[in-house]
Design a protein around this nucleic acid. Structure first.
Lengths: 243, 243
DNA sequence: GGGATTGTGAACGCAAGCGTTCTTTAGGAT
DNA sequence: ATCCTAAAGAACGCTTGCGTTCACAATCCC
């Protein structure tokens, strides 16, 4: 903690450093407010409680707060002030480390998103897809996953380059790759239709998970993954004789 | 225009009426700023130009401005002030009609989103799916469609009930229903596998379109619909003998 | 033309949040 | 215990935007 570098990897950082701002339209103080109590685990009292976090512990608390704020209000409504409050620290501690909100978000997500997964050969494409979709579902259900979903909204807007590369590299492409590996292996094994292993087909699982998460407020049924595999993915990729 | 009612159908309107606000983090003045010139179609001059719009014409300009602001910055960054500026009108004209930003958005989208589609019997599931995906793609490509995509981000956040019902009623369910009709007709006709017409399967098309739009900044290739049908949807729903 | 209505731009008081600075406090190492 | 450094809280001046109000202007209709 004697070489904290102010991180400015986000480059064009969403105009954060501009003196002008747009209204978020809804800072009723509840954005991430609920996280205030959970960040420090301390109930009651207006002081920081049992003591100050420093270094890595403080960064972890800041990350938690940032992800929660991102999840509950989206990137636009997330504020440095809110994150600082939820992490029970001061803004100066944030600005000592991160030049902008985007820098903080990328660091928080980059540190907490699950890694790419490599599903081993389980002997059948069904078993492999089941495991992969379960992995994806768990990832989506995690704190980082829900925050990442919220951040994906920024891809719709101008100046989103800063997040575009991150999400492509850490989410979209790894998901497609993991699926593609399973499909190609299945083609060799014979339980995947020849020619089924295309990028478009590889996007179906992730697309469906995200769609369902979106329209069900992030709640995925326990058996959604299985239904997805059996109703959608297997019929799509199985050879004819498996129908 | 003698009975303009201040519309307040949005109920819990995102804390818009709360005196508190959250920072959008990026009001560099460019949110929807580019739309300023296109809203009125009038170039040059600091006045309203050839005349003031009233009534329906003004509302149309306001709707355009609102949708553009929603698209370029999302709901949180969209401001009444920005919409008024882009529509070359005053805030008071907006507030005479809509109590809140959410009210305005729902009205703007409700008035401009394309209606549910009913694809006729074209003799083959492929032809029908092609036409439906083309319809969806066009809708997504429209001003209302892109704004609706931006608004879907709000579904990820708390207090999104106000938009949830709207999007379910006007987007999600109609899309699934249109697909389901095609699948059921195909089952009867014999070119769709019995049992393929499930809600999950019916979600695949819309999910993929949205996913692709999201990761390609709204740009869908001209032949994306065809590839989606031929690589994903047809293999998924065709009977075995069609493989 | 006159009256009613709507629209425009400015102004208002208020709010949240920005990024920065400063003082005091607390944590950690010696 | 002492010293150094990071952290916490407060304060600052500034910004944008909120929702409202008002005066004036424009439009529409009789």
């Amino acid at each position: 903690m004697d070489q904290i570098v102010r991180r400015r990897t986000a480059g064009g950082d969403q105009g954060e450093t501009s003196p002008g701002r747009a209204s978020a339209g809804a800072a009723d103080g509840s954005v991430g407010g609920g996280a205030g109590g959970s960040a420090g685990g301390v109930v009651g009292g207006t002081t920081a409680g049992p003591g100050r976090k420093r270094g890595k512990a403080l960064e972890a608390a800041i990350f938690d707060a940032a992800l929660d704020q991102l999840t509950s209000g989206g990137f636009a409504r997330m504020t440095m002030e809110g994150v600082a409050g939820a992490a029970q620290t001061g803004k100066a501690a944030l600005y000592r480390r991160w030049a902008s909100k985007a820098d903080l978000v990328l660091d928080a997500l980059g540190s907490t998103l699950p890694p790419p997964v490599d599903i081993p050969d389980l002997g059948s494409v069904r078993a492999e897809l089941m495991q992969l979709m379960a992995y994806f579902g768990d990832a989506l259900d995690s704190r980082a996953g829900t925050a990442m979903r919220a951040l994906m909204a920024e891809l719709d807007h101008e100046r989103a380059r800063v997040f575009q590369d991150f999400i492509m590299d850490r989410v979209i492409r790894p998901a497609a790759l993991a699926t593609m590996q399973i499909l190609q292996r299945g083609e060799l094994r014979g339980d995947v239709r020849p020619g089924a292993a295309t990028p478009l087909v590889a996007d179906v699982g992730p697309a469906m998970l995200l769609y369902r998460a979106k329209i069900c407020q992030g709640r995925l049924d326990a058996d959604f993954g299985q239904a997805l595999v059996d109703e959608v993915l297997l019929p799509m990729v199985s050879p004819a004789e498996r129908r």
